[in-house]
Amino acid sequence: MPENNTSEKDRDNVIVDVKNLNFYYGSYHLLKNINLYFKKNSVCTLLGPSGCGKSTFLRTLNRMNDYTEGSKLTGEVLINGKNIYDRSVDVVELRRDIGMVFQNPNPFPKSIFDNVAFGLKIHGIKDKDFIVERVEKCLKYSALYDQVKDKLNKPALSLSGGQQQRLCIARAIATNPSILLMDEPTAYLDPISTSVILDLINSFKKYYTVIVASHNIQQAGRISDYSGFFLDGELIEFSEAGSFFTRPKDKRTEDFITSRY
């Protein structure tokens, strides 16, 4: 059992609660009995080397693994107290409250405006003024507005990689989700774009619970309230960022933080 450093009494404001989560793909046991919880309006980073299961774990939180043929999941993921793997849960409905940003910027083959408006439109919002206002606001939040305000009708794919990633962030927050999942959002970006996005993440915790998968210790240190360390599908350690980065309990965490992997 991995040790959970956050005190068990301190369970107010828990928004995501993961209990005994196991995930299998064919004969591979990709996630091994994961137990942890995330608190409202915090930034949590999940660290670990490539292939440790942190992306898979992230994708269990909005059931994106449902499409992986031959996969199996046991355990519970409670979001606001409700198990999202319960039969009564509508996956489409669930994802509307959970934004996701991917490793590769993946704007839709549409205009910049339509990308951000996409979520609103598929959620059935027809009020044009509201959509325009919301799109503008989200582009401002994601520090992109000044660069694109004169070309909102231009194709999103004409933007640079860093801009595309910020567009994807704007798109993810447009529907005002309560949780934002980010899967190595800066992996392919240059240092300046990376820095902009890290600042964004820091500012986001006012509004959202942000869960970030990353393999970059420095970046994680800059933004985390809580941090966890995954290794070979196991959650080795999960605790407040302060103690996680300075006094890790597990030797393996320490090795990772001091870059011995």
């Binding site: 994802r95 996701m100 991917f102 993946n106 083959p109 996409f118 798109r171 993810a172 999942l181």
Partner: peptide, 12 residues
């Protein structure tokens, strides 16, 4: 990844 982007937004 393009399809995942839409699915993750709650697209049918």
């Amino acid at each position: 990844i393009a399809k995942d982007g839409a699915l993750a937004m709650g697209a049918t």
